[in-house]
């Protein structure tokens, strides 16, 4: 029967179209983009070969390093927030709400499916100062505090961005981690309880070590998403005030499409890709070391 499942013509018909589209849209452009890094120009004015100029410019461009710093800071804060609060949520689901957690899970998950642009505009209005005092400032006012101009300084804007991205994703990480914790056998938990482990002790010594694999995948997924953050920022602050909340993705986009510098834009995109790879590899390696220790 091997020849039926090994039919070359059938394989070509089934796999061909997908491979063709994938190659044309993903693989070729990635290589092409690498090629752009040694050119300068755009489709309208044409391209000139500049060698490694883009890379030397990249190394000396303070805006790039600001963007890298912002990207890393944002990724670190939001990943820690998403995974940590998500983990607390999953513990709440499993150990406190138990069977009745379904309705809470479903409600808290809801913001995950909302379009980022819609959520960002909603948060702009929630944190607004003028002309309408938004919900957050109204609450601050009712406790006697002064309204805060949330989008007036880089630090405040960063806070709003982080709050929004954590708000919209804790439902996701709650469910993701919940699925990991539920799989811990009830017998294991019961025998730990008989040995006197309760509350945080149970979580620290039994639940946490057993849910490390799912925590790891949550961290990797989160860091990969946050390093590539784009929608949230372009819709919420558009990188402002000034360049205070401008990540690499946004800087790449502006360089390429506002200033028409395709070569330099591609070089920034390459830097972004390398940062993503390095961080993922770093997490993988450091987690493996931890696992062998434990």
């Amino acid at each position: 029967m091997k020849h039926v499942l090994g039919d070359k013509r059938a394989i070509a018909i089934l796999l061909g179209p997908a491979l063709l589209v994938y190659t044309a849209v993903m693989l070729v452009p990635v290589l092409w983009s690498l090629g752009y890094t040694v050119f300068e120009g755009n489709t309208i004015i044409g391209f000139t070969f500049v060698g490694f100029d883009n890379f030397t410019r990249l190394a000396g461009d303070p805006k790039v390093w600001d963007a890298v710093l912002f990207t890393l800071k944002y990724a670190l804060v939001v990943t820690v927030g998403q995974v940590f609060i998500g983990y607390l949520m999953s513990l709440l689901y499993v150990f406190v709400l138990k069977k009745s957690s379904n309705i809470v899970r479903t409600l808290v998950f809801f913001p995950v499916v909302l379009p980022t642009v819609a959520v960002a505009l909603l948060f702009q209005k929630l944190f607004e100062v003028a002309p309408q005092t938004g919900v957050v400032n109204s609450i601050i006012n009712s406790f006697g505090g002064e309204s805060v101009d949330w989008f007036g300084s880089g630090a405040n804007a960063f806070l709003v961005i982080a709050i929004m991205d954590i708000w919209r994703s804790i439902g996701f990480y709650g469910v993701l981690l919940y699925a990991g914790i539920v799989e811990i056998p009830e017998d294991t938990l019961e025998s730990a309880r008989l040995d006197g482990a309760t509350g945080w002790g149970l979580v620290r010594h039994i639940v946490l070590p057993l849910s490390l694999p799912v925590l790891l995948s949550a961290v990797i997924f989160s860091i990969n998403g946050t390093l590539k953050v784009f929608d949230t920022i372009i819709a919420l602050t558009n990188g402002g005030p000034g360049n205070a909340t401008s990540p690499l993705t946004l800087y790449m986009f502006q360089t390429s499409f506002s200033y028409g510098e395709y070569g330099y834009g591609s070089t920034i995109a390459l830097l972004l890709t390398i940062v993503c790879l390095l961080v993922t590899v770093f997490i993988f390696r450091s987690s493996r070391r931890d696992l062998t220790k434990a």
Partner: peptide, 13 residues
Amino acid sequence: GIMVPGQMILLPL
């Protein structure tokens, strides 16, 4: 393809 950031393919496309 799952790993590559969208920015990598924007300009050629």
